[in-house]
Each structure stands twice: as structure tokens, then as C-alpha cells.
Design a binder for these strands. Sequence first.
RNA 1: GCCCUCAUCGUCUAGCGGCUAGGACGGGACCCUCUCAAGGUCUAAACAGGAGUUCGAUUCUCCUUGAGGGCGCCA
Length: 438
Amino acid sequence: MPQVRVRFAPSPTGFFHIGSARTALFNWLYARHNGGVFILRVEDTDQTRNSDEFLRLIYDSLRWLGLDWDEGPGKGGDFGPYRQSERASVYKEYLERLKASGRTYEKDGALYFRISGEPQVIEDAIRGRVERTEEKDFVIVRSDGNPVFHFVNVVDDIAMKVTHVIRGEDHLSNTSKHTELFKAFGAPLPTYAHIPLILKQNGPGKMSKRDQGALVEEYQKRGFLPEALVNFLCLLGWSPKDDREKLPLAEIVRLFDLPGVNQSNARFDEKKLAHMNMVYLHEMDPGKCFSFARDYLKSRNYFAGAEPEEAYLREVIALCQPKVRAVEDLPGFIGYFFSDEYAIDPKAREKVFSKGDPKARLGELLAALPQADFSSDTTLEALIQGLAAQHAAGTGDYIHPARLALSGTAVGPSFYGLLRVLGRERVERRIARFLATA
RNA sequence: GCCCUCAUCGUCUAGCGGCUAGGACGGGACCCUCUCAAGGUCUAAACAGGAGUUCGAUUCUCCUUGAGGGCGCCA
């Protein structure tokens, strides 16, 4: 069995979207599973729609997702160049061969390929036997002299010795054009594997670049964890067949195979992606989570140049990591750690003042603070429990008003952790201020 | 219009002739007397329809319906 060679062949004519990312991912998984070669080939033959910016986006997104290519731009390889805009001589050579075979003719200034009209049969690795008969001759070179997709795609797959063509099902009907060309060149057919499409989450049709949540770049900017997105994407059209969902990439590489890929289209579900992202965030090593979250907050210019002390930020992040669903929730969750200027949520205030005597409890807490032991959550818990016992109250009678005073809100991280991280000074100051003004 | 593909809870899926049709997201309920966007427990929810094949079909075949895709001098 010759070495597996697969390629991902995007065209830089628009933003890099989820569907493309999954196609790249499945190719990458198949290459890694088989110890094969993952080729990145840029299909930039449409000179009017190409853009360097989109090309950079493709590179960035693939790198962010961890889909490293073995051959391609910036990497080299024995079958380059890997940008079709630089392969004119290759196409010319193959074109001459086709012309010599008498299978081409010119019409309206464009060059057409004369099909055989024979039924084209492929053994698709995912769908099984698929037969289709191509009905019309088609253009392979535009009147401006540029070759078109069907032609260059096949020529490059031959020239780059691609063994498996793993692509979206939207190409299934085009395959008859491609096999006609392979045969005209006397080249063996690659193994085809047409993966199901990703459908937009609302409304009919496949997901496109314009749809909500379609752009990979968007998830990167929003602070999603690439491992989570990759894991989620693997589960769209493939599964490990047991009930596991979060599984390490190495395990997916070990299990992934073409016959295990589903045949039916999958609807994109951003809620489930968000959940996967949360699971990854909660299980993340706190040290890694800290740097990831810090980088995210910086990218959002959250600190506006006034960055807090690293040790303090580290504690804040560690305290909130298990409580937020995503790092993008952080800005709205941690503001009061860095500024005394937080608003008191009226609803939370109303709830706190609806029963008992919150001010009296806060007074008692304030009085106890100078002697309190802030070294651990446990000692602080003991402090609150001691006060509660002493004044025949519940711990909640201290906790709820104090949380409101310290953060202005009714929701937040573990209360004892909140006290510990804020520290005695801030806690005293804020409670005193609250008692004086509220 | 012609051609190709697909069809299990709302969604992602497991199931490859005999199962109380399993898991996850989302939904609902309850618990956690430290809140909650976190965590825990429980719960509702599916084999599109019709013919066959078979002792027996979610599972195999055909038809219908539905969904998706292709039919560019886009890729």
C-alpha cells in the first residue's frame, strides 16, 4: 500500500469558515491516522476574487486549529509549487497532452473538454458505489487563458500523487467531470470520500460564510479554545461509536477512519459547541487557563494599559475558571476585582434587603474583620460560621449582603474565595462604604 | 426541469434482523440552605409514510414524501 497523500485545497476568495475547517480536519485526521502526508494546496485560479488577506486567514486559522501541513506554502515539498497561481507551466504541459489526444476543442474563445459520455463509477469510501453520467462537454480553459477549477484540480491531484480525495458532498456530482479527466490522462482514480455537509443552524441550506457563527476567525477572537472547536467539529459527521464526546485529539487520530464517517448532513449547533468549550475550559490546567485568559483580556484591551499585578490576576482567574462558561464571560464577571467603581444591581439589592437585617449583619462582619484569618477559604468559612452561631443567624445572612456589598451583584464565585482573593483591605473598605451609603 | 446523495428524540449521535431504542446538547423539575451563568440528581422527547423480504424489521429491497447538493468561462 503506497503512502497516503491527502490534500486540503481551499481558495482564498472569502473568509475561512467552519465547513472548510472540518474538511481540512478530516483530511488531516486521515493523514495522521495513516502516517500519511497532509498537503495544503491553494486554489487561487480566480484572479478576480483572490485576496492575500484571505490567504493569510487560511494559514492563521489552520495553525490556530493545530492542523499542520506536511507539504504546502511555507513548507515546501517535492511536488510544488503549492499555489496554483504559480503552476502555469504544469497546466500547460498537461493541456498539451490533452490537446494531443484530440479531446479538446475551442468555442467562443474558450477551450472545451470533450467528455466520453460513459457512466462514471466511483467506489466512495463513505457512500459506496456511486454512478453518474456526465452529460455536457465543459470548459477547461477560459477565454482569457486561465484554466478552470475542474481541470487544475485534477491535474494537481495527479501531479501531486494524491491518493485520497476527501471533500464535501457538494462535489459529489462534479466527480464525474473529474473521473472523465483522470481517464483522459490515463491516470488511476484516487479514492474518493465525500463527507456530509454542515447545514446552517437556522433556516434551509448548507452553511456559508455569511451565516451566523460560520467564521473560524470569529471563534478565535471570541476566545474559544481551539481544542474544543476541533473536538466539536470531529463530532459533526463522525463519532467514536461509544458514548464519549470529549476525547483527546490523539485518541481521535487513533480511531478516525473513512467508513466511520456519517453519510447524512449535520446541522451546526452553536449551543453544543459552547458546552464543549466550557468543558474544556473547566478541565484546563489553571496555569494554562491563566495565560489563555490573560491573553484574551489583553486582546480585548480589557485593562486599557493598566494591567493588574500578575499574582492577583492569577488568583482571580483561578477563582472564576470553574464558574464561567467561556473566557468571553470574564469581562462581565470580574470587573469588581479591579475597581471599586462597580454598580449595585437594584434587583440584587432588593432581594438582600427583603428580609432580616442585612446592615446589622454587615456591621458584625466588619467588626470581626481586623482579627480575621484571610489565609484560606476554610478559615474564612469558620469566621462566617462563628458569626452566625454567635448571633443566632444563618451563614446566608452574612454571605448575601456581603456579596452585594463587595461586588454589587448576586452572582459570582465561591464567597469564601471571593473574600480571600479580594483581601482584608478591600473587603473592609467596601463593606464600610456600603454601610455608609446604601 | 434533469442528475446525485441522505433520512433514529428539537439538535449532534449509538444501533449494522430479536434492545425497556443508549449517550450528549438544549428544555423541564428538584438538590446544593454561598449566589449562579457553575456542579449534582431525575425527567419529557425519536426510528417520516407505504409496500415487500423474513418466524421477526429502526436495521435488507422498492416506492412516496422530506431534506441537502450539483447542473458557471466560481471554487
